[in-house]
Simulated assay, not measured.
Amino acid sequence: MTKLQGNKSNNTALLVGTLIAAALIALALFAGRGKSSEARADAASGTEVKANFDLTNKPVVGDANAPVEMIVVEDFKCPACKQFEANVFPKVENDYVKTGKVKVYSVAWPFLAEVAKLDEDDSKYAAQAGECAFEHGGGEAFSAYKTILFRAQGSESEIWATKDRLKELAANVPGIDQAAFAGCLDNDETAARVDANEKEVDASGVNSTPTVFVAGKKIENPGDYAQLQSAIDAALAQ
C-alpha cells in the first residue's frame, strides 16, 4: 500500500485542497440539478407550446380543402379574445378564408369563470353553446354566433353567459336550428367535447387566450396582423 509522503504541513494543505475540490464538484452538481428543474418548470409553464389537437368535429370556418390550418384557442369571456375577433379575425377572413387559402378552427377553453371563482361556470356554458351552434347550424352559423357572443360579452367577474342568455343570443342567428340548439345546451350535450378541449389545451402547453397556431406553430403576438400574415404566407409557400 502506497502512503502519502511528506510532513504534517504538506498533509494539511493536501487535505484542504481536497475539501475545496469536493465542495466545487458538489456545487456544480447542484447547479446542474437546478438547471434541470428550471427546464422542467419552463415546460410546465408553457414555454414549449406545440399544437396537439384532434380537429375532428371542432368548429371550423373556411373551405375544407384550404391548404393552411389555423387554430384559435379562446374563452368567450376573454376580453383579449374579443379584441382579436373584432380587429384581427376579419382581416384573416377577408384575405385568406374567403379566398380558400385558410380554414380556421376554434378550440374553446373555458377557464375564466373558474379563475374568478364564480358560482356558475358560464365560461363553460358559452363554450358548450358554441359547440351546439356548430352542431346545429354549421360553420357559418357558428362564426355568426361567436361574433354575437363576443359583442354581448360582459365582465370576467360576473356571470353573464347563462343558458337562457345564450339561447336568446342564438335566436339572432337564422342558420341555427333553435329547438335543437336549446335542447343541446340544456342537456349539456357538448360538455364532453369541451372537457376534451381542456385536456388538449393542457397537452399543448397553452396557458393564455387567445393562443393562435398557424400550420401547427404558435404565433407569439396574434394581435399583430402583420406577424400573423407573415406566418400564413410562409405556410402557403411551403
Rank of each mutant, 00 (worst) to 15 (best):
C184Q: 09
D122P: 07
Q238W: 00
T162K: 00
D119F: 04
A108L: 11
V88C: 13
K117Q: 15
M1R: 09
D42K: 11
V68H: 05
V206P: 01
E140D: 15
S204I: 03
S157G: 10
G6F: 05
C81S: 15
G154D: 01
F89W: 08
D188P: 09
G154M: 08
D195E: 13
K8N: 13
G139P: 03
K91H: 15
E220A: 15
Q153T: 13
E198T: 10
V68F: 05
V16R: 15
L185A: 08
S9N: 12
G34K: 12
E48Q: 13
D188E: 14
A192Y: 06
N57L: 08
T18Q: 05
A234T: 11
A170N: 05
M1F: 10
A43Q: 12
Q178S: 13
A196Q: 06
S45W: 02
S157Q: 14
T190L: 02
L55M: 13
L166D: 02
D42S: 10
P67T: 07
G216A: 11
T209V: 12
T211Y: 06
K50G: 03
D54N: 11
Q227V: 12
A116H: 05
A235Q: 05
S106T: 15
G130L: 06
Y105D: 10
L55T: 15
D75I: 04
G137H: 08
G183R: 06
N87I: 12
Y105P: 08
